[in-house]
Design a protein around this nucleic acid. Structure first.
Lengths: 129, 129
DNA sequence: TATTCAATGCAACTTTGTTGCGATATATTT
DNA sequence: AAATATATCGCAACAAAGTTGCATTGAATA
């Protein structure tokens, strides 16, 4: 099972133009295996002995994964970024319920965004993160 | 005009059981005078020479103001707390549009919360901050 | 005006994240 | 398979936002 996430992670990373390093594969597979967004520290805790890496490298890998849209990051009330693997088939044309306590993001498919709503002048929607 | 906010701030603070110090009055009046949420640094910048105070004190005053519900604080993507004076007459039974770029919070009175919506089990609404 | 204890200022500390740079490892070429 | 180029990594130092402990000050009450 962990093996599958490993494979999936490597496949996703090889689709980018950048290098498929073992750090990137390990970290993305950890995110893929998880149902919720993880902090830097939570990811560190899930790395095995053999996968140990410098904290700076972890920050940089996470930033890279986010930039490549393989994951997205969530700002929470505790000033800590949380990362969650991106589901590429996930269409974002509906509202999200983001719990600021447990950081879980739940899709509210029933609540359609009202694009005709009266938003303040000068505010446009942009891609999340 | 600034004078009025001073008076209003002092009145609000005297309604609590704690002490009405000049720091608390100055800082709350700065928040009252503003239409948007302010960071610690932005508040510092708005203090006159005579109102200078230690940064720790500012953190503590803001925390106190928040605890007394005279203001609420907003977590933003830049990991910085923003504070905004609370309008006591403001009923929070409608959705908010919180811009993560400029931190402005706009009330979407048109969008009623659907309390019958199918939320995930175990999620209940709580008071914001 | 004197008294009391909450509020303040200062120094030191913590947490989260960033930057610069030489060393290492990945992908490509030979 | 070995050599090469350069992206990635590890280490050290740094930065920003916020917190804690403790001695001093000042707002409210007697």
């Amino acid at each position: 099972m962990s093996r599958n996430f490993q494979k999936k992670a490597e496949e996703m990373i090889r689709h980018t133009d950048d290098r498929a390093t073992s750090n990137r594969i390990h970290i993305l597979s950890i995110l893929l295996a998880e149902q919720q967004a993880l902090t830097h520290r939570e990811i560190e805790a899930r790395l095995s002995m053999k996968q140990q890496l410098d904290r700076v490298t972890l920050y940089r890998v996470l930033e890279w994964i986010n930039n490549k849209n393989l994951a997205y990051k969530i700002a929470s009330d505790d000033r800590v970024w949380r990362f969650r693997a991106n589901m590429p088939t996930h269409a974002h044309q509906h509202a999200h319920f983001e719990c600021t306590c447990c950081t879980k993001v739940i899709c509210l498919d029933d609540l359609k965004l009202e694009f005709n709503m009266h938003y303040p002048l000068g505010i446009y929607f942009k891609k999340l993160n």
